[in-house]
Design a protein around this nucleic acid. Structure first.
Lengths: 161, 161
DNA sequence: TGGAATTTTATGGGCGTCAATGGATTGTTA
DNA sequence: TAACAATCCATTGACGCCCATAAAATTCCA
């Protein structure tokens, strides 16, 4: 399997380090790990997007269609490359997130890693919970609209920890 | 890695010196560093463009495509070569930006280095923040135009815990 | 199948190295 | 000799790298 799946929550230690979940590291290596992960603020969420070479190539692909030295390319470059940080993974599988990135995602003491297939996101756990809660509500609404009662056996939201 | 990526902000000291981020210096060396970086005012932004040999060759390539003695070539030559400065990097990895260049970018006490792949830019931090904000909005539009995959209703449903 | 042994992970801390920054010293030129 | 530029040196703080420990998962064997 070479996609990022599942969620994991790890701690940020006193030096600002976080362990990248082992399954994600495995994916990164199969992806052709080249010294660091590519990480940037998510465009539409208070989170960070990250990935390996495949993600980098995707970014390159976006720019490849634009002519050199066009205004458009320069602007896109700033947004795509300029925001990207290459973050090294140390021998123990940990990364250190720069302050600028931490700020965007509101990361403090813990990080929730969320697999999204060809990339993964990093969230502050509280914010991710909130987002997931909203997402589930929307799913419920959809079901009602479809006329099917969701099998609510009891109040169990599955939030067993 | 042989591309400029990430952003770094360094200080200008009393003598006008700034450290070029170490990762960028590494790229320059692999690029065939020849005594100095090529630096000129960005054509469409209050910033400075800079790079190594590859950038120089790219400029040459642009001009090569145009017929000799054409107006277009003359204009481009002036625009591209005219303001280029070759700036030496001292033993400690620092450069001194001439007043003319500092003025164009409005550089005062700090410089934000922005990796753009084949080249990098130098910005006054405040101005860069503004530019990035605008650029990110444009990227949003691009994503829509490019028809991204339908928004995932839930980032991580597979709770493996 | 159960339980012990072993391996993998997450996390904490120590330490050496390097990069960024400031200052001093030497060299150069008008 | 004054002003400026280039080179060298010193400090400090961050980061990379190593090891230690504990918990969890996996393997192995009876």
């Amino acid at each position: 399997m070479d996609r990022f799946v599942s969620t994991f929550t790890n701690k940020i230690d006193a030096k600002g380090r976080v362990s990248v979940p082992a399954p994600f590291r495995a994916v990164l290596e199969r992806d052709g790990y080249a010294g660091g992960i590519y990480c940037y603020p998510s465009l539409d969420a208070p989170a960070l997007d990250a990935g390996g070479e495949r993600l980098a190539q995707k970014i390159d692909g976006l720019l490849a269609g634009l002519p050199d030295y066009s205004d458009e390319r320069d602007e896109l470059s700033v947004a795509l490359y300029g925001d990207v940080q290459v973050i090294a993974i140390d021998g123990d599988g940990r990364i250190v997130l720069p302050q600028s990135l931490r700020g965007h995602a509101g990361l403090q003491s813990e990080v929730t890693f969320v697999g999204l297939g060809d990339k993964f996101q990093m969230w502050a756990p509280e914010r991710f919970d909130e987002r997931r809660r909203v997402a589930r509500e929307k799913v419920q609404e959809h079901r009602k609209l479809l006329g099917r009662q969701p099998p609510r056996s009891d109040g169990g939201d599955g939030e067993s920890e």
